[in-house]
Amino acid sequence: MKRLYNSPGTVVSEALEGIALTHPELLRLAHDPTYVARVDAPVAGRVALVSGGGSGHEPMHVGFVGPGMLSAACPGEVFTSPTADQVEAAVRAVDAGAGTVLVVKNYSGDVMNFEMAAELLAADGVDTETVLVADDVAVEDSTYTSGRRGVGATVLVEKVCGAAAARGDSLAQVAELGRRVCARSRSLGFALTAGTVPATGRRSFELPDDEIEFGVGIHGEPGRERRPMEPVDALVDRAMAAICADFDPAVLTGEVLLFVTGLGSATPLECSIVARRAVQELDRRGLRVARNLVGSYMTSLDMLGVSLTVLVLDEQLVELWDAPVHTAALRWGA
């Protein structure tokens, strides 16, 4: 394996040092336990927003810390949940007394450790609300989950909730908006190759050159099926059909946000080709792509693949999506 690592054991710590050193105007890095927080947190009178998960999915979550998005992020080791003490310490560092919303992807370790942290904080009088993201339509249960996996909608929840917190919404209001995004989002991904885990130097699964994993998880969990390789338009059509079929038809109307994220090795060229077909397919179904985000925002090491997310918009969600954001990975209007 040829990679730009000094050693597998220092991958996460050195990457965190790198992002902190290159964005000192935004971020501060804490150790023992490890978390990354906004330099200006806690922000008086505002709800805080904390998320986290295993490393290997960069820029999620650390790259989304900053005004208009996360107050803090708790990075675990590669594909390993952050610990409860990381979450607790991060919340204590950024909570300004208005409470903290915890954005949690539906993976067993994340759920358990965020729940444990919330209990410890509650015992000390710190108010939290949890938004559980479970938007992947590929499978109901997987290697890491009971129920659906949390994937691309996590980024959308963090953006919408971050904007709501910035404008002064209450703890209950910010959490409810996050749950609305979850209820109105569906995702599915597919991969041509797996990611290479630093600790082993091997791919997390093997695929023949003429097959794809359809519905793959962001840790390399199996999807719906292994299929023969097809042209990208056929793959996107298949993914969009699965996503749209999972919505209540009464909900899937009007304007949508399309989120296409490369999973690590998909080039901008490939992501644009995928987005092109997804917009065409949504238009064919009578849906207008009013907002979009295309690029590599939620990855799986060097997995070659993409994940597609559709969020059904309403007027308030559009307003919050368009609100200013200034993070290492996402910035507009600020």
Rank of each mutant, 00 (worst) to 15 (best):
L269Y: 15
M229A: 13
A241G: 10
A290S: 15
A290H: 12
T261Y: 05
L287M: 04
P228L: 11
V236Y: 09
A239F: 00
R276C: 08
D248V: 05
M240G: 01
L287N: 01
L282I: 03
C244I: 05
A241W: 02
P268E: 06
A290D: 15
L252F: 04
I243C: 02
L269A: 07
R277V: 09
D237A: 15
F247Y: 12
A245Y: 01
V274C: 05
R288I: 09
P268N: 05
D233F: 07
A275V: 07
C244N: 09
A278R: 05
Q280H: 06
R285D: 04
R276T: 14
A266S: 15
G254I: 09
R285I: 02
E225N: 07
T267F: 09
E281P: 00
T267A: 07
P228M: 04
F247C: 08
P231N: 14
A250D: 15
R285W: 06
D237L: 11
I243W: 02
R227I: 13
E230D: 11
P268G: 08
D283M: 01
T267R: 07
R238S: 14
E255H: 12
R226I: 03
L252E: 01
V260N: 11
P231G: 13
L235P: 00
L269D: 08
R226Y: 06
L263P: 02
A278P: 04
E281W: 02
R291T: 05
M229I: 12
Q280C: 08
L252N: 03
D246Y: 07
S265H: 08
L287T: 01
M240A: 07
G264D: 01
L235K: 08
A239N: 00
V256E: 00
P249R: 07
I243K: 01
V289M: 07
G254H: 08
G262Y: 12
T261A: 12
D237N: 11
E281I: 10
E225Y: 03
A242C: 13
